[in-house]
Amino acid sequence: MSVTVSRTVTLIVIDEEGHLLGELPAFDVSVPFWPETSEIQTAARDRFGLDLAVLRLLRADDGADAAGGQVTYLGQLLSPAPAVTFAPAQVDLAPHPLRAAYAHPGGPAETLAWAARALDERGRGPVTGAVQQRTWNLSTVWRLSTPTGPYWLKQVPSFFAHEPAVLTWAAGSKRVTPLLVAEDARMLLAHVEGDDLYGAGVETRRQIADDLHYLQLAAIDSVPHLLADGVPDRRRPQLLAYLTRVVESYGTPDPRLRALVDGLADRLDRVAACGLPDTLVHGDLHPGNVIGGDARTIIDWGDSFIGQPGFDVLRLTDRMAADEAAIVIDEWAARWRAEVPGSDPRTSVELLRPVEALRLAAVYADFLAGIEPDEHPYHADDVGRWLTRAAELFEVSP
Rank of each mutant, 00 (worst) to 15 (best):
T4A: 09
S6Q: 14
S6H: 12
S6L: 13
R7P: 05
V9P: 01
L11E: 02
L11C: 05
V13H: 01
V13L: 12
I14Y: 04
D15P: 14
E16Y: 03
E17Q: 14
E17P: 03
H19D: 14
L20G: 10
E23A: 12
L24F: 05
P25W: 10
A26Q: 13
D28M: 07
S30M: 10
V31F: 07
P32S: 07
P32A: 15
F33L: 08
E36F: 13
S38G: 07
S38M: 14
S38L: 11
I40C: 04
Q41I: 05
T42A: 15
T42V: 08
A43F: 04
D46I: 10
R47W: 09
G49F: 13
G49V: 12
G49Y: 11
D51R: 14
D51G: 10
L52C: 11
L55E: 00
L57S: 02
L57T: 01
L58H: 00
R59H: 03
D61Q: 03
D61N: 03
D62P: 01
A64W: 10
D65E: 15
A66G: 03
A66M: 04
G68R: 08
G68W: 07
G68M: 08
G69C: 03
Q70C: 02
Q70P: 02
Y73S: 01
L74V: 08
G75M: 06
Q76P: 02
Q76G: 04
L77V: 07
L78T: 09
S79R: 15
P80T: 11
P80W: 14
P80V: 10
A81L: 12
P82Y: 09
A83Q: 12
V84S: 04
T85G: 06
T85R: 13
T85Y: 04
T85N: 06
F86G: 04
F86S: 12
A87G: 11
A87H: 13
P88M: 11
A89F: 01
V91N: 00
V91C: 03
V91G: 00
A94K: 13
P95Y: 01
P95W: 00
P95N: 04
P95T: 04
P97V: 05
L98I: 05
R99I: 03
R99G: 00
R99K: 06
H104E: 14
H104Q: 14
P105K: 04
G106D: 10
P108W: 01
E110L: 06
T111M: 07
L112N: 10
A113N: 06
A113L: 03
A113I: 08
W114G: 05
A115C: 07
A116R: 13
R117A: 12
A118G: 06
L119P: 01
D120K: 08
E121H: 09
E121Q: 15
E121G: 15
R122D: 06
G123F: 11
R124M: 15
G125M: 07
G125D: 11
G129V: 12
V131N: 01
V131M: 07
V131R: 09
Q132W: 13
Q132M: 10
R134E: 13
